[in-house]
């Protein structure tokens, strides 16, 4: 599983990275956490608002920091598929 954090290095993006890292650890799954901070890559996702979170190439949330519970749910949904 590949989890991407979209954002150009703002404080919120760093906070989101921390939450995602913790969540992945708590779930005990193996996931690659990637920071996407190049504007051309962010534009490839068509995002206009950051921070955003993409799991396996699909944006699940943008413009706010989700809770751990939400992130867990998204990850589990992906795993079921």
């Amino acid at each position: 599983m590949k989890i991407e954090i979209l954002g150009m290095g703002c404080p919120k993006c760093r906070k989101l990275t921390g939450i995602v890292t913790e969540t992945v650890k708590e779930l005990g799954i193996s996931a690659e956490i990637v920071k996407v901070d190049q504007i051309s890559d962010i534009m490839n996702y068509g995002m206009m608002i950051t921070p955003a979170l993409a799991i396996d190439g699909k944006v699940v949330v943008a413009g706010r920091i989700p809770s751990k519970e939400e992130i867990k749910q998204w990850i589990l949904e992906k795993q079921e598929k």
Binding site: P11, K12, C13, M43, M47, M48, T50, G63
Partner: peptide, 8 residues
């Protein structure tokens, strides 16, 4: 927010 200024 300022950090979204560019993508926006």
């Amino acid at each position: 927010c300022t950090c979204s200024a560019i993508p926006l």
